[in-house]
Simulated assay, not measured.
Amino acid sequence: MTLSILEKLSASTISIRWSDPCLGHYESQIWGIGLSRADATCALSGQPIRRGDSIFRPRAYGSHVPINSNRMILASVVAGFFHDSSR
């Protein structure tokens, strides 16, 4: 799996490039902020995610639920990414 943050769109959304040989490819997928509903692993950093952590996840639109909808990125990792890239 390959994942990269393309851009911070707003305080609550980011644009992601996602590619996985089994799950497909998203060139510019919108992920929104929320709270984790379960323990997981951050798709970007590999850090543990605990239920209730602030995370980004792929947005669903109506009945279209992305194949990677169960993936998450810690919001703190995203904040660090944009803080580090502004130097």
Results as ranks from 00 to 15, higher is better:
G34V: 03
L35D: 14
F56V: 12
I49A: 01
T41C: 01
K8Y: 02
I33H: 06
C42D: 14
A60N: 12
S15M: 09
S54H: 06
M1V: 08
E7L: 12
W31C: 02
S12H: 14
Q29M: 08
R59C: 12
M1S: 15
A38N: 05
L74E: 06
A75P: 08
R51Y: 06
C22F: 12
A43W: 01
M1F: 06
A11H: 08
I67H: 11
S54F: 11
R50A: 09
I73N: 01
S63K: 12
L44Y: 13
I73D: 05
A43H: 05
N68S: 04
T13S: 04
W31M: 01
A75L: 09
A75E: 13
K8P: 01
P48Y: 10
R59I: 15
I73R: 01
V65R: 11
H25N: 11
V65E: 11
I16V: 15
I67D: 09
V65W: 03
P66H: 06
K8C: 03
Q47F: 09
R71P: 01
L74N: 10
S4E: 13
A79F: 03
I30R: 11
T13V: 14
I33N: 05
Q47G: 00
C22Q: 15
H64L: 11
S54C: 09
R37C: 04
G62Q: 12
E7Q: 13
S85T: 13
G52E: 05
I55W: 07
I73E: 02
S45K: 00
S19V: 00
Q47Y: 10
R71F: 13
R59Y: 06
S86E: 06
F81T: 09
L23I: 03
G34I: 04
G46W: 08
P66S: 06
D20C: 09
F81C: 02
R57I: 05
P66E: 02
A38S: 14
S10Q: 09
T13H: 15
R50G: 07
I5N: 05
G32L: 04
D39I: 04
A43E: 07
V78L: 03
S86F: 09
D39S: 10
R57D: 10
I33F: 05
E27H: 10
Q29H: 08
Q29D: 15
H25L: 01
H25F: 12
D20L: 00
G24V: 02
R59S: 07
A38F: 13
S76W: 08
V77E: 02
R57A: 14
L35S: 13
